[in-house]
Simulated assay, not measured.
Amino acid sequence: MKIVFDFGAVLFRWHPPSFLARVWAHRAADEVEGAALAKDLFQDYRGDWGAFDQGLIDASTTADRIHARTGWPREEIVAVMDAVPSELKLIEGTAALIQELKAQGHALHFLSNMPEPYADYLEQTFPLKDWFVSGVFSGRVKQSKPSREIFDLALEQFGARPEEVFFLDDHPANIAAAKALGWQAHLFTTPELAREDLTRRGLLPA
Rank of each mutant, 00 (worst) to 15 (best):
K2F: 06
I3W: 11
V4C: 09
F7W: 15
W14G: 00
P16D: 07
P16T: 04
P17C: 02
P17K: 08
P17R: 06
A21N: 07
A25S: 12
R27F: 03
R27K: 07
A29E: 07
D30E: 13
D30H: 09
V32P: 05
E33K: 15
A35G: 10
A36T: 09
K39L: 13
D44L: 09
Y45D: 05
G47A: 06
G47P: 01
D53G: 00
G55A: 07
L56I: 01
D58R: 00
T61K: 12
D64P: 00
I66Q: 03
A68R: 09
T70P: 05
W72G: 05
P73S: 14
I77V: 15
I77S: 12
I77H: 05
V78R: 14
A79H: 02
A79L: 02
D82S: 05
P85F: 00
S86T: 12
E87S: 11
E87R: 05
E87T: 05
I91L: 12
T94E: 13
Q99W: 14
K102L: 15
K102G: 14
H106V: 12
L108P: 04
L108N: 07
L108G: 13
F110P: 12
N113E: 03
P117Q: 09
P117H: 03
Y118T: 03
D120K: 09
D120I: 12
Y121L: 05
L128C: 01
L128G: 08
K129S: 15
K129M: 09
D130W: 13
V133M: 06
K142N: 13
Q143D: 07
R148K: 14
E149F: 04
I150G: 04
I150R: 01
F151V: 04
F151K: 07
F151S: 03
Q157Y: 09
Q157H: 03
E163T: 11
L168N: 01
H171K: 12
H171G: 02
I175K: 00
I175Y: 00
L181K: 10
W183R: 04
Q184H: 15
A185Y: 10
D197M: 10
T199L: 05
R200N: 11
